[in-house]
């Protein structure tokens, strides 16, 4: 039987009608059209599906969408400020941290949560913060560089 509920994604309330066993990444992609979030392993291993729930990273492939109602969901689509890319996005491009790009949305969301919590992380803290995200292209070094560079961008008060 379908459940009817609302999901708040990037500050927007979306009505959802979906079976209770649907996972969050599936509902974000197939029902709400937010295809920035990727589905890789569907087994909580790779982190391509990483979104933030009340600011904390979760694997949306293995999280029931219905369980996210009433919470703030943040996806990669919400990182940009109108036409302005987020410092994490500009830096991951400049540092060469994007090759095939499949891991990038998940990497960005884990990095975003890390910098919100730890504005100037050490390399070890960056590694731990991204430890749930696999990348098969870059070897990670350029991604770590990008996060470190983004952490040094002067924060502009809104």
């Amino acid at each position: 039987m379908s459940e009817i509920y609302e999901l708040r994604v990037n500050g927007v309330d979306y009505p959802v009608t979906a079976d209770a066993n649907r996972n969050l990444s599936g509902v974000l992609r197939d029902e709400l059209g937010l295809t920035g979030t990727k589905e890789g392993c569907d087994d909580c291993e790779c982190g391509a599906c990483m979104v933030l729930l009340d600011g904390q990273p979760i694997n949306s492939c293995s999280y029931l969408a219905a369980q996210a109602q009433g919470r703030e969901i943040s996806t990669v689509e919400g990182l940009m400020d109108r036409d302005e890319m987020h410092p994490l996005q500009t830096n991951i491009l400049e540092c060469g941290g994007v090759q095939c790009g499949f891991c990038t949305p998940g990497m960005l969301m884990s990095a975003h949560a890390l910098l919100e919590r730890t504005p100037e992380p050490s390399l070890e803290e960056i590694k731990v913060g991204l430890s749930g995200n696999l990348c098969r292209c870059t070897g990670y070094g350029t991604i770590f560089e990008a996060v470190a560079a983004a952490s040094k961008v002067e924060k502009v008060e809104p």
């Binding site: 729930l53 749930g132 995200n133």
Partner: peptide, 9 residues
């Protein structure tokens, strides 16, 4: 346990 995402929930 797992990763930050696993430990958060």
């Amino acid at each position: 346990v797992g990763s930050p995402a696993t430990r958060n929930v």
